[in-house]
Design a binder for these strands. Structure first.
Lengths: 284, 284
DNA sequence: GAAAATTAACTGGTATACAAGATATATTAG
DNA sequence: CTAATATATCTTGTATACCAGTTAATTTTC
């Protein structure tokens, strides 16, 4: 994890210049008593929503970096997350670092032991299990709605995405392949007009993603994914929602829990709940 | 929204006493150089997970209170959330208040305009629409799994919950009625061993809940809900998963978007996205 | 030597002070 | 009287200092 210190703004003049001007006018204290405090803040106008001009805050940068590092397993489950170290790496104070860490806690990617330490969260097996179920359920309704709503241009756009994914598979670029994979599913969600549900899908995907990264790249898996995506899209193009849902389920069911991963290879990365994971216990 | 200041601990002695003791022993600087800094924090033992002894932090209290106030519409969409005011109400500093507010932002219940103000988020119509879809999808897989896993005792427990709900309906206690409603659905999730999915369901419910609170209590609705719950449970008890899913869908489909709510009654509480809500536009 | 007690130095939680942008009011100009 | 300008005082974002609890190395005790 290599970071560059967040560039601070140029040396700010602060309020000095203004203060000098005030002194020059020679009318400071008089005005202070005359002015009345401004009224309570009014809410933004209806329909306009909050302004979207929010500049990227330092905490956002730290959050994004950490998030990526954790999802890619660059930071392994159980690894300590030292606030102090992060403040030095990014050249910011603890406040924005803390903010980022708290958001990661909310995401279930980080756990904090009060007054003791903060650590990259281990992966509860039950969470992966549930994430697979939840994702299937959400992608199902999404692809169904998308089939009914998708335009011809959308279908063409998705064919292009699949084509690109094919090219990435041929090139063996796994990272780009997964980006295209993401784009395909995102496109379905966009066609369905379900941005919120897409957000939920992404959240549960993250939990599975950490698990998936541990499985060695299976030979021949990338071309297979392309075929599965094509099958989904063909059904969508034909306007057959039931078929599209079925193809999507077949696609998603390919990713199954491989118990050897956490039993033999990385037992420290997972936590097992005796009651929630009782079935897995039985099959052991 | 009436709050009592969070009770602070007794006056702390700080480190003064310890410093005095050090002086009395007369061996301060010598020891300082002898001790070596402790090793880097070790992650918690595998399998044990993080200790769950985390005491309720002040930020949690503020978060819970605000969360409740927003969901119950005690704080209306668009209402300002003043950090300063909250620090005074709770008798804590801005830090924990800020923490709580940030969590609410993550929940989509609050929006902040940088350097300007923080406000209770308006309800995007599209979010409610998607929440209804997502909840149906998630409750579907949950009730299906619950039907296959639920024990006799669980069924009996759920019958008790329905009975209690019936009693609350008779008493006309809407608040308690909704709590029992929540308990019923929670029990299904527990039977399905889906705590994570239940969490997701609750999250999307919150968005709908704010909308639901705006609809006047419909006469005869509570007894109907009890009937619907009973139908779901009967199917579960019979082990008929498909029927249970069907009954659950019928139950959830009772709550539909009533366009007059935001067109005529509380237009300021909602935001409408011209592209995501195009269908609603058309039907207007 | 081994186990218990001690203690320095780590951690995250909180309080407070300051910085910088946004906004309503007061002021001024026409 | 109206519109443009100025500015005091709001707001949130950030930095820093301190508090309190945990932990591991040290010391002590047997």
């Amino acid at each position: 994890m290599t970071h560059v210190k967040i560039a601070r703004g140029a040396i700010s003049t602060g309020r000095y210049g203004q203060a000098m001007a005030e002194i020059e006018t020679g009318a400071v204290s008089e005005n202070r008593t005359k002015r009345k405090p401004r009224a309570a803040n009014a809410p933004p106008a209806a329909g306009s929503g909050i302004r979207a001009r929010s500049a990227a805050k330092n905490s956002d940068i730290v959050y994004r970096d950490l998030h990526k590092a954790i999802v890619t397993m660059e930071l392994a489950p159980g690894a300590p997350v030292l606030e102090r170290k992060l403040t030095e790496q990014y050249g910011v104070s603890r406040t924005p670092v803390r903010e980022a860490v708290l958001r990661l806690v909310e995401d279930g990617l980080v756990e904090v032991a009060p007054k003791s330490g903060t650590f990259v969260a281990r992966i509860p097996l039950s969470v992966v299990r549930e994430a697979l179920v939840a994702r299937r359920a959400l992608e199902e309704v999404t692809v169904r709605a998308a089939t009914e709503l998708s335009s011809e241009s959308r279908i063409m756009q998705m064919r292009a995405i699949i084509q690109q994914q094919q090219e990435m598979a041929d090139a063996g670029d796994e990272e780009a392949f997964h980006q295209a994979d993401d784009a395909f599913h995102a496109s379905i969600a966009a066609a369905a007009r379900y941005p919120g549900i897409w957000k939920m899908i992404q959240q549960v995907r993250i939990q599975v993603e950490r698990y998936r990264r541990l499985t060695l790249p299976q030979t021949g898996r990338m071309p297979m994914v392309v075929k599965e995506h094509t099958a989904v899209l063909d059904a969508m193009a034909a306007g057959d929602a039931d078929a599209a849902v079925a193809r999507m389920n077949e696609h998603l069911n390919k990713l199954q829990l491989d118990i050897s991963i956490f039993r033999d290879l990385w037992p420290d990365y997972f936590t097992i709940d005796p009651v929630l994971d009782e079935k897995l216990f039985a099959s052991r």
